[in-house]
C-alpha cells in the first residue's frame, strides 16, 4: 500500500474507534493507526511470516483467511473494517464484502483500478494482459483473479445493495473525490479507488 493511501484511511477513521485490518500484511497500517488515532486495532493475515512480523511489533493479529475466518466475529464487532487492495484476490468477493459489512459498522475498501488508461492502452496496443507497477504479475501467476475498475465497484455497490459514503481516486499521489459527473475521468486516470462503505 502506498503512503498516501494510509494517510487517507487514517483521515477517515475517527479517534478511539475499533478497527479490524483484513489482510494486515506486516502491520504498517496498524502501527500507523495505533500511533495517530489511538484506535483499538486487530488484524487478520493469511501469511504466517507476516503474522510473526506483526507479533514482533506488539500487534494483535490472528492468522486466518478473510474468506472463511471473518465468520467468527459477531455483527458490528468493529467500527471500521479495512480491506486494502485485496478484494480482487478473493475467490468470492461478494461474500467478502458482505462479511466486511456484517463485522464492521463501516468498511474501507481500496481497489487497484483496472480502468486506468495505462492498463487500457496496454491491452489495446499490445494485446496482452496488462502489466503495470501496481499490477506486476503475469496473467498465469497473478493473485488478482477478480480485477475491477472504479466504475465496476460503483456498479457492484448497486447490485450488492450497499452505500458508498465516500469515494476517492488516487492520481499521481493526489487524492480527489469521485462524483457522478467526473467518474468517467477518474476511472480513466485513477490508479486506486478508495471507498468508505456501509450497509
Amino acid at each position: 500500500m502506498m503512503k498516501t493511501e494510509y494517510n487517507f484511511i487514517t483521515n477517515i477513521i475517527e479517534k478511539n474507534s475499533t478497527v479490524l485490518d483484513v489482510g494486515c500484511d506486516d502491520g504498517i497500517l496498524m502501527e500507523f493507526l495505533r500511533k495517530n488515532k489511538n484506535v483499538n486495532i486487530r488484524g487478520i493475515e493469511i501469511s504466517k511470516k507476516k503474522v510473526q512480523i506483526c507479533i514482533a511489533k506488539g500487534l494483535t493479529v490472528i492468522e486466518g483467511n478473510a474468506e472463511f475466518d471473518l465468520k467468527q466475529f459477531p455483527k458490528n464487532s468493529f467500527d471500521y473494517v479495512v480491506l486494502g487492495q485485496t478484494l480482487q484476490a478473493f475467490i468470492n468477493p461478494e461474500i467478502v464484502i458482505k462479511e466486511l459489512l456484517r463485522v464492521g459498522k463501516k468498511a474501507i475498501v481500496t481497489i487497484p483500478n483496472f480502468g486506468n488508461w495505462k492498463v487500457r492502452l496496454d491491452l489495446l496496443f499490445k494485446g496482452t494482459m496488462p502489466i503495470t507497477s501496481s499490477l506486476p504479475h503475469e496473467w498465469y501467476n497473478t493473485p488478482n483473479i477478480h480485477m475491477c475498475t472504479i466504475k465496476d465497484f460503483v456498479k457492484f455497490s448497486e447490485t450488492m445493495n450497499f452505500k458508498i459514503v465516500k469515494s476517492l481516486a488516487l492520481i499521481n499521489k493526489n487524492i480527489s473525490n469521485i462524483s457522478k459527473s467526473n467518474i468517467f475521468l477518474k476511472n480513466l486516470l485513477g490508479e486506486l479507488g478508495i471507498f468508505l462503505i456501509e450497509k
Binding site: R42, K48, V51, Q52, I55, L59, T60, V61, I62, E63, G64, Q72, F73, P74, S77
Partner: peptide, 18 residues
C-alpha cells in the same frame, strides 16, 4: 478457542507454527 474469544471481542492473537 480463538473463535470463542473473538466472539466476545476479547483481545486475542493467534498463529499456527510450521
Amino acid at each position: 478457542i480463538v473463535i470463542a474469544l473473538n466472539a466476545i471481542g476479547a483481545n486475542v492473537g493467534f498463529v499456527e507454527i510450521d
